[in-house]
């Protein structure tokens, strides 16, 4: 049994090559001096320089970040409320429908969500005159709707493994239910809420399909800008932009992973100390 699983480790190695070779190749070719994106013509950083002066890219990035910040924050509040409702509120009227509504957007194909949101906004504009124009508001509303259920899924999983005795202790000591929620429950599940926010933020920042249906004239997010260029083919300046995005996100995820691992290790050590002190 102690033989090294050679076959499995080989597949693992090839699997990781499969994951990372395309991205590494893209990064290498972003330093390509040639205008032909796939033929090597010497080292150069000129595509990065040209990105700095490209106001189109910078405007799109700012719009994307604004939408992601607003939609992730509202989605986190609504998604956390939905998770608490599902795990803590027991039986309420319409619970089955509600739990269906919090899972259906997860499996709904994006193109259908996009088309139905657009039809909804177009008909709404005709019936009540709002939204007169599609753009920041309509994109943000659509993003909140499909990202809040991801927050619900994460927070719900955390709530289900919550030690309820500390909530009961607070109740016994005279806290009102909503005080228990704010003083005990929310602080304890805050790491899950933060993960939910990060996920909602990245989903919003990354979305092409739903955004392309809910956008209007003049509102080009970064993925939409890339989408319109990429449809025409591979270009070195998109390679440079893609490299910047991939490296930024990669660094953030790695740092967040390390910080969370450290915090988890410290929490475990603290718990062990506490047990020993009581012991």
């Amino acid at each position: 049994m102690n033989r090294r699983p050679v076959f499995l480790l080989t597949v693992l190695g090839f699997g990781f090559a499969f994951f990372y070779v395309p991205i590494l190749s893209m990064i290498v070719y972003s330093f390509n001096a040639s205008r032909l994106a796939t033929v090597w013509g010497g080292f150069s950083t000129k595509w990065y320089m040209s990105l700095w002066s490209n106001t189109q890219v910078i405007d799109a990035l700012i719009l994307s970040l604004k939408i992601a910040l607003v939609s992730a924050s509202i989605a986190t509040i609504l998604g956390t409320m939905a998770a608490i409702a599902l795990v803590r509120m027991g039986k309420f009227r319409g619970r089955t429908l509600f739990s269906g509504l919090t899972t259906a957007p997860l499996i709904m194909p994006e193109v259908i969500t996009g088309v139905s949101s657009l039809i909804f906004f177009l008909l709404l504009a005709q019936w009540i005159g709002w939204p007169s124009q599609r753009g920041f508001t309509t994109i943000t509303l659509a993003h909140i709707t499909f990202s809040m259920v991801f927050v619900t899924t994460i927070v719900q999983a955390r709530l289900l493994q919550f030690d309820r005795t500390i909530e009961e202790a607070a109740m016994d000591l005279g806290s009102k239910p909503w005080q228990v929620l704010f003083d005990i429950t929310l602080p304890v599940i805050s790491p899950a809420i933060l993960s939910g926010w990060l996920l909602a933020f990245t989903i919003s920042l990354d979305d092409v399909v739903i955004t392309s249906f809910t956008t209007g004239p003049g509102s080009t997010t970064l993925p939409l800008l890339i989408w319109s260029k990429v449809k025409l083919g591979v270009t070195p300046d998109i390679n440079a932009l893609a490299t910047l995005m991939v490296v930024t996100v990669g660094l953030c995820v790695v740092i967040a992973g390390i910080v969370m691992n450290r915090a988890e290790a410290r929490r475990l050590a603290d718990e062990r100390l506490a047990f020993r002190a009581n012991g």
């Binding site: 990781f16 994951f19 990372y20 070779v21 395309p22 991205i23 190749s25 893209m26 070719y29 032909l36 994106a37 796939t38 033929v39 090597w40 990245t202 920042l205 990354d206 092409v208 993925p223 890339i226 989408w227 990429v230 083919g233 591979v234 998109i238 390679n239 893609a242 995005m245 991939v246 996100v249 990669g250 995820v253 790695v254 992973g257």
Partner: peptide, 28 residues
């Protein structure tokens, strides 16, 4: 973490990375 990392990076850019590899004149 290396399995999850691609999931956080842009979906569109992961598709794009393959467009670069599959083109007729690419090294791949």
């Amino acid at each position: 973490m290396l399995v999850i990392l691609p999931f956080w990076t842009s979906f569109l850019l992961r598709v794009y990375a393959w467009m670069g590899l599959m083109g007729k004149s690419s090294w791949f």
